[in-house]
Design a binder for these strands. Structure first.
Lengths: 348, 348
DNA sequence: CTGTTAGCGCTTTCAA
DNA sequence: TTGAAAGCGCTAACAG
């Protein structure tokens, strides 16, 4: 029984190094380095020998060692910080980032802040690994720390939200304009009593979407009834509860505008449970999978998270490569997607 | 205008090192190392001075350099390879992995294989960074390469699928049993003509789920009609097409069993477009967001991807810490979640 | 074309 | 309790 574990490879066996390859090939280790890095000036014969030796020892370059010594010191790694990678919105951002990163031979490290206070920890872990840049999406709690890292040479780009200090690059959706468009869509359908359900006021995007809500009312000359506004909702359950509460008022809203993914879904659940989903209009900010298969389909103001991730990564790479122009703020347009729920007319 | 860019931090400024801190504190750099690593034997006074200097220079340990020199050479990083991080199933696995990793002060690198042939590239990038271990979920194409890395000391754990070579750890769902239970559920509702829609036969999980489908028929003594079987479906669209085709046969199935997330959704779309969703029973393998809000709610055999990720990461850590026991295979149970679609009786 | 020497930022070993 | 020297695996700068 004991002998049988020759089958499972022993872990932690020493990996071959440049010197090992050099010894086997009978050359100096610098020559191996040249071959591995595709530097010119190695005779074909030696190159062949080196490649054979490298293959035989299954040599893998130690990238971390090479970064350490290298002039520019670029680690060819970037980190992505999100609230929760299991949230589809962030997962899509991640994908956009990854796509760009891979095209530039960059590796992506990821960290979810989750509910714990892991933001600081994560940033420390990433900078200790000397990532070239950080893409930051989570709830805003560490402005100084990031400013610090930035001044130490780590590029930083915000995505989905604006930085508090306002002096860093950011990629955001057209939150205000998009929300305004969504609300205007409800107004165009005849609604005048529209409820707003939004996330925490500490979240910049939530504020902007609320401003869009206000703006649309102003543009249409409709008085906004503050009893129809519910902010500070940070979970699906909170959104469900708030919706139930709103609809059981004396003067319930005839339409809902929801400021975010989970809130939209929470509201849908509430409408269902009241049997009000066919007569209550609704537009949600941010698209979600299967929104079109619900009944009615949910009209949304769609963002493009993958594009946001892509653009953020591109911006980051430019900074890493030395772009020192003033901070840029890129706004990614949103798109209204009518699917039924937003076209329901006001009832009785 | 030009002077104003004192505002934006200069990138690539040299970061402080142990020696810088030592110089400022007036001690040897080894003393700083001791303080930073919490090694005993530094006088309180020196420690205070070192901490102050470290703070002042905003010193960040260079983790990659320390790994290079360190005895055990552990990088405290693990990599996760998936098909597509934007797929909710993989995103949940990711989350489980992350949770465990962070608890053990590990960092997670991620890579999506996507449709391109990036698997080899990704594994190379990760091992070049000397991750301690690899968690592998994607479609199986690189058995030898991974075997190679394993024998060089990189721990490998498969998740969601069994390794071809069968000598590595793996965490999988109870694919066969779960599928059998799902199909038995349809049979219990009175169905005898049940279609199967599954993914590529090259994917192990798809095969096992099909075996469960077969098994459930055998257990119930129902003859399986191969004209009702569609395999090799690898996209939502393919699933939609196959479903349309099945239902337009002379003897259409009265129930569907779908082998995977996207296939389930593709089938739902097909049923909708035929107006057959209220009369065709359906059970899908793998749960998805909002399955309960569709009409009818979609009955599924739910997996627990987050648990799978968690267990995989735990297994990996044990291996990294030197566990050399024979390869283990952990099966995570599935759970049947009735929501309506699976309880529709056979029609006409 | 090929090799030698130095040293990246750190831990290890050993001496003071 | 503190420090000096060596060296992890690699690239840079310079010789031959």
């Amino acid at each position: 029984m004991v002998e049988q574990d020759g089958d499972i490879a022993p872990l932690r066996r020493r990996r071959a190094t440049l010197r090992d390859v050099a010894a086997l090939a009978g050359v100096s280790f610098k020559t191996v380095s040249r071959v591995i890095n595709g530097e010119p000036g190695v005779s074909p014969e030696l190159e062949t020998r080196v490649r054979a030796a490298s293959e035989q020892l299954s040599y893998r370059p130690n990238h971390t060692a090479s970064v350490l010594r290298r002039q520019d010191g670029r680690s060819m790694a970037m980190a992505l910080l999100v609230d929760d990678i299991a949230n589809p919105f962030f997962a899509s951002i991640h994908r956009g980032v990854e796509r760009v990163a891979l095209n530039h031979r960059y590796t992506v490290l990821t960290g979810s802040v989750l509910d714990d206070d892991r933001e600081r920890e994560l940033v420390e872990a990433f900078t200790a690994r000397r990532v070239d840049g950080l893409i930051v999406a989570p709830t805003p709690t560490l402005p100084q720390q990031l400013a610090q890292e930035r001044s130490s040479g780590t590029a930083v780009v915000y995505v989905d939200r604006l930085p508090r200090d306002l002096d860093a690059d950011a990629v955001v959706a057209a939150n205000r304009a998009g929300a305004a468009q969504g609300v205007a869509h409800l107004i165009a359908a005849g609604h005048t009593r529209i409820a707003f359900l939004g996330d925490l006021r500490s979240i910049g995007t939530a504020v902007e979407r609320y401003e869009g809500f206000v703006e649309a009312h102003a543009s249409a000359g409709i008085r906004l009834d503050s009893s129809q506004v519910r902010r500070g909702l940070h979970s699906e359950q909170a959104a469900t509860d708030a919706t139930l509460d709103l609809l059981q008022q004396d003067e319930p809203p005839t339409a809902l505008f929801t400021g975010q993914n989970l809130i939209t879904i929470g509201a849908v659940r509430a409408l269902r449970s009241l049997g009000a989903h066919q007569r209550t209009a609704m537009v949600g900010f941010d698209d979600f999978l299967l929104a079109d298969l619900l009944d009615p389909g949910v009209t949304v103001v769609a963002q493009e998270p993958e594009t946001m991730g892509r653009v953020a990564a591109e911006l980051l790479l430019e900074r890493i490569l030395g772009d020192t122009s003033p901070p840029r703020q890129v706004t990614i347009p949103t798109r209204l997607v009518p699917r039924g729920s937003g076209e329901i007319p006001p009832h009785g």
